[in-house]
Write a protein that binds this DNA or RNA. Structure first.
Length: 822
RNA sequence: GCCCGGGUGGCGAAACUGGUAGACGCGCCAGACUCAAAAUCUGGUUCUGGCAACAGAGUGUCGGUUCGACUCCGACCCCGGGCACCA
């Protein structure tokens, strides 16, 4: 082995050895308990950026640490290969999406291998492989048969640049998340997955996810948006011929029902349409609302406007006639598209009532006298005590919730319900580069699923783009089919799935990438749930919610027998460059290639881990890489100098000098601390610090007294094994240099020797009135009187105690003495 | 507006259970080696005063609890993220 450290030579040699020994190919029959370690697979955009480097290094550190701890670890890698950029490249450069994608995959795989990630490449797949999306199509049909898939015409977010429909989640501040173009409204037939059927379980199960960060669970709770309320029917007078008996509203504040002075409906509400037929003014207003863009930023800034329909409904408890308004702030998609308005106790209703001169009727008064309530200034929205509410007067809001709900239930005019903000998942995309939706439209039979024997519906890869539109829509050989039911002429669905479909179950497929009947087999139950999932915080809501949903769908299909896909979750902070997210910044700025060529993978990996704790966002700077390259070289030189000094005798703790014993203590402290940092705290930055400290201690100790050589050897051996999950190549070579013959990745994490941690003398800090005034060394087992005497005997301490009365002496064993004087 | 994070040297950060604030690294300064530079090694590096020993101040702000607070409590300011005409 070369005496000077050449990272490129080291890394090539070690990677070759892992390949030859198939070190990272996992099997269900491997020794130890299973551990499934997964980092979110990337979109093959062209090249890795530093955000990828961080994510996969973190995953690999966990992978390698858990291996050392004796687990049977599986860490796969694959490609989230469908998506818009491939189409954009095709449109721009004329390269077919499939070819562009494959080319990117090959390049990025090479970069990952260069970084030395311990992936099980035998399980690799791309979501654009027909063998993969075959089963997605199969599963979709199963869900269709179960009634969990439906087709619905709905207003969708239309991205005028990408010419496609976006999910609500893909609209950011009213703009398409990729194109950045303002989103428009459009009506279209779409396929939906009934995620709302699982809303309750998706919410409740969050409480059991102890290995998830609280912030992510809170975001998901927020997104699901459960609220408890009452559905209230306001009867419609019979003479109006409106086609409905009652107007149903949803409220979370039934206690304020007696304060309702009008009701408001969305412009798309049937009642609004009826009113529009009868009044040109109302029709004009409804029309105006329809043409509004869905852009959320604009909606939020929108002035609250409405128009009276001239219609009235009947208050379910008082029998009073209440006017019906059409209002632009009522959402058709939430609740029933209609609200009861209580201006006295809802700020938005208050503003609306003031604007249009609608009466404001107080029915809640503050329970506590000091609470402000001035209805001339603003609505009183807090809970309180009921007034002006007939038989309900005097009840608290909480009591009135139940009492009024019950009164309505008895009259058959209301029901307690639970509402969710979560909407069903629209999965249709008018795009080419995605998984074809396996459905056929027949004029005679309607919707007919593609028969199982005809799956997969393969996406043609030889295509020509004309503009942005999907080439499938004009490709007769694709869309012209015979109806599987009647044999007549039919048209194949040309929409493709939202790519979140592919990423919702890939983790399970990695367990059995070749499973063929059906999508998963018993190996999925062996490997899943994923024990540790690592990925970017930007996926905290959507991807993780959809994957949880899919896991439950697969469970209910009998394909898998657990309830949740990811046991422990590590959400990475973002890697920023000039204040921007690395993955979004253009060009080569984030490409690690130049750094790899200059410093090698170990230095890049170590610098990345050392920069900040994993969950924290940080600004990437190359400055740290050189420092870690220097550190690798120092460790390399220390090992080689140590070994060059000849045979190392066996360790006999009793034979060591004081320096040797101190080094041993540092060694075992490092081992203990790193174990906790790796396994429990996931703070890999402090692991690097700990190894730096140990290395510094070795530098100071070696070459020392020849009797301490076994302690130096043990310290070097420990530094190498502790650092190995982070800088695996150089550590492997140093492991061999230290005379070890087994591959480091097959070794076991050493247990810390408690006896090495015992100290004979300890240094105590001496404080006077809480301020540090000196230090004293005492025997570790010294009694309180001895410690006290030593503390008071310190020269500097004496100066501060002199002439004062010692009121109290507090001793913290092994740490400090605080002398309180006055 | 509501819900999460966070605020510590020139910079990235550490201090895990209330017990030495600034470990570790970057950068910078000085020295050694060198004709010189790079690399490497050694020392220094929170601020103020002091040759030094040491003293005073110091973890966003103000207050509290405590022998002792970056850490706990109360009020507030700022930054980042999520949600939001959600009835």
């Amino acid at each position: 082995m070369s005496a000077t450290y050449d990272p490129h030579e080291v890394e090539r040699a070690v990677q070759q050895r892992w390949r030859e020994e198939r070190s990272f190919e996992a099997s269900e029959s491997g020794a130890g308990e299973k551990f499934y370690c997964l980092a979110m697979f990337p979109y093959p955009s062209g090249q890795l950026h530093m955000g990828h480097v961080r994510c996969y290094t973190l995953g690999d550190v966990i992978n390698r640490y858990q291996r050392l701890k004796g687990y049977n670890v599986m860490q796969p890698m694959g490609w989230d290969a469908f998506g818009l950029p491939a189409e954009n490249a095709a449109i721009k450069h004329g390269i077919p999406p499939a070819a562009w994608t494959r080319q990117n995959i090959d390049y990025m795989r090479g970069q990952m291998q260069r970084l030395g990630f311990g992936f099980d490449w035998s399980r690799e797949f791309a979501t654009c492989d027909p063998e993969y999306y075959h089963w997605e199509q199969w599963f979709f049909i199963k869900l269709y048969e179960k009634g969990l898939v439906y087709r619905k015409s709905s207003v969708v977010n239309w991205d005028p640049v990408d010419q496609t429909v976006l999910a609500n989640e893909q609209v950011v501040d009213g703009r398409g998340w990729r194109s950045g173009a303002p989103v428009e409204r459009r009506e279209m037939d779409q396929w939906f997955l009934k995620i709302t059927d699982y809303a309750e379980e998706l919410l409740d199960a969050l409480d059991g996810l102890e290995g998830w960060p609280e912030s992510v669970k809170s975001m998901q709770r927020n997104w699901i948006g459960r609220s408890e309320g009452v559905e209230i029917d306001f009867p419609v007078p019979g003479d109006l011929e409106l086609g409905l008996d009652a107007l149903t509203v949803y409220t979370t504040r039934p206690d304020t029902l007696l304060g309702a002075t009008y009701v408001a409906v969305a412009a798309e509400h049937p009642l609004a349409r009826k009113a529009a037929e009868r009044s040109a003014e109302v029709a004009a207003f409804v029309d105006k609302c329809r043409n509004l863009k869905t852009a959320e930023a604009e909606v939020a800034a929108l002035e609250k406007e409405g128009i009276a329909t001239g219609l009235t409904v009947v208050h379910p408890l008082t029998g009073e006639a209440l006017p019906v308004w059409v209002a632009n702030f009522v959402l058709m998609e939430y609740g029933s598209g209609a609200v009861m308005s209580v201006p006295a106790h809802d700020q938005r209703d208050w503003e609306f009532a003031r604007k249009y001169g609608i009466p404001i009727k107080q029915v809640i008064e503050p329970a506590a006298a000091e609470q402000a309530c001035d209805l001339d200034v603003e609505a009183f929205t807090a809970y309180g005590r009921l007034v002006n509410s007939g038989g309900f007067d005097g009840l608290t809001s909480e009591q009135a919730f139940d009492a009024i709900a019950q009164a309505l239930e008895e009259k058959g005019l209301g029901r307690r319900t639970v509402n969710y903000r979560l909407r069903d998942w629209g999965v249709s995309r008018q795009r080419y580069w995605g998984c074809p939706i396996p459905m056929i439209h027949c004029a005679e039979c309607g919707i007919v699923p593609v028969p199982e024997k005809d799956l997969p519906v393969v996406l043609p890869t030889e295509v020509k783009f004309e503009g942005v539109r999907s080439p499938l829509t004009t490709m007769e050989s694709f869309y012209r089919v015979a109806c599987p039911r009647c044999g007549g002429e039919a048209r194949r669905e040309t929409d493709t799935f939202d790519t979140f479909m592919e990423s919702s179950w890939y983790y399970a497929r990695f367990a059995c990438p070749d499973a063929n009947s059906p999508m998963l087999d018993e190996r999925a139950d062996y490997w899943t749930p994923v024990d540790h999932y690592v990925g970017g915080i930007e996926h905290a809501i959507l991807h993780l919610l959809y994957a949880r949903f899919f896991h439950k769908l697969m469970r209910d299909q009998g394909l898998i027998h657990s309830d949740e896909p990811f046991t422990r979750l590590l959400m990475l902070g973002m890697v920023l460059k000039d204040g921007r997210k690395m993955s979004k910044s253009a060009g080569d700025a984030g490409n690690p290639q130049a750094l790899l060529e200059k410093y090698g993978a170990d230095a890049v990996r170590t610098a990345m881990m050392f920069a900040a704790p994993p969950d924290q966002s940080f600004e990437w700077s190359e400055a740290g890489v050189e420092g870690q390259a220097r550190f690798c070289r120092r460790l390399w030189n220390l090992v080689h100098e140590h070994m060059a000094a000849g045979e190392v005798p066996a360790l006999d703790p009793a034979a060591l000098t004081d320096e040797g014993r101190a080094l041993r203590r540092k060694t075992h402290e490092t081992l203990k601390r790193a174990d906790d940092d790796y396994g429990r705290r996931l703070t890999f930055n402090t692991v690097v610090s700990a190894v730096h400290e140990l290395t510094n201690a070795i530098s100071r100790a070696a070459p020392g007294d020849p009797r301490d050589r076994p302690a130096v050897h043990e310290a070097l051996r420990t530094a190498v094994i502790v650092l190995s999950p982070i800088a695996p190549h150089v550590c492997q070579q140093l492991w061999s240099a230290l005379g070890e013959t087994t591959l480091l990745v097959n070794c076991r994490w050493p247990e810390a020797d408690e006896s090495a941690l015992v100290q004979e003398t300890v240094e105590l800090v001496v404080q006077v009135n809480g301020k540090v005034r000196g230090r004293v060394a005492v025997a570790a087992d010294a009694d309180e009187a001895t410690v006290r005497a030593a503390a008071l005997g310190n020269e500097n301490v004496e100066r501060f105690v002199e002439g004062k009365t010692v009121r109290k002496v507090i001793t913290v064993p092994g740490k400090l003495v605080n002398i309180v004087v006055g």
